[in-house]
């Protein structure tokens, strides 16, 4: 979706402000939100793509004005409500008043913590040969999916060069909507700064994205 989360190339957000000696969490509740998102995802309530999509679908003004973990909280609540793991009555009561729904991987317990400290596996067997190889010139398609996609707007319609082949991975565009993993070839595609930002752009810039094969067309 063409949401405000797709920020590459936008102007007006001001300077980057690093915080010296930044704490891992600025408030304790942030750590609880992180833990709940990780636990419910690992228990099988949702996958990483769905959790991203629910944050992206927050209203733009909410997305832009909420802190990072506030977005995670709002996205998590919306996702769990939509998928029926919690109800509006539960939220209104601040306690569980509705029956629980079964989780794909069961209750998240302390024994599960170790395994979530390593990122999940997203590589999959290839359903078909790769269409592209390193060195190929490709165009990022001019597409505007209304739902989740990992093709940022700033590259759409632009020509780049395939630099690396990462094998086949879960396709976020379908996985986010419970429409299956549909593994796709994934490539690092490099664009010249002037191709993306025009002839007045800094000529020393190159920008790459990792693009799933359906995002690309041969030229």
């Amino acid at each position: 979706m063409n949401g405000v989360h797709d920020m590459g190339g936008m102007d007006g957000f001001g300077k980057v402000e690093p915080e010296p000696n930044e704490p891992m969490f600025h408030q304790e509740w942030e750590s609880r939100v992180l833990a709940m998102v990780r636990a419910m995802g690992a228990a099988g309530a949702f996958n990483i793509d769905a959790s991203r999509f629910y944050r992206e679908t927050l209203p733009p003004q909410v997305y832009l004005s909420s802190s990072y973990y506030k977005k995670w909280l709002l996205g998590l609540e919306a996702l769990l409500l939509d998928k029926g793991f919690i109800s509006k009555d539960d939220v209104a009561a601040g306690h569980s008043v509705a029956p629980a729904k079964s989780l794909k991987h069961g209750k998240f317990s302390i024994a599960d913590v170790e395994r979530i400290m390593v990122r999940g596996k997203f590589g999959r067997a290839a359903p078909a040969p790769a269409k592209f190889k390193a060195g190929d010139r490709v165009r990022a398609k001019n597409i505007h999916p209304a739902t989740h996609t990992r093709l940022p707007r700033y590259v759409r319609g632009h020509v780049g060069v395939v630099e690396r082949d990462h094998g086949c991975h879960v396709f976020p565009d379908t996985a986010a909507n419970d429409a299956g993993e549909h593994p796709q070839w994934l490539y690092t595609v490099v664009f010249d700064g002037r191709e993306l930002w025009g002839p007045d752009s800094d000529p020393t810039i190159k920008v790459s994205i990792d693009a799933f094969e359906p995002y690309l067309e041969a030229i």
Partner: peptide
């Protein structure tokens, strides 16, 4: 956040101690 944590633990989705352990691990 507290309310959501209560709901998730009361429903038996997550062990409260497991949430503590996640935070500690990070």
């Amino acid at each position: 956040v507290r309310a959501l944590e209560s709901i998730l633990t009361e429903k038996g989705y997550v062990e409260a101690a497991a949430l503590d352990a996640i935070v500690q691990a990070y």
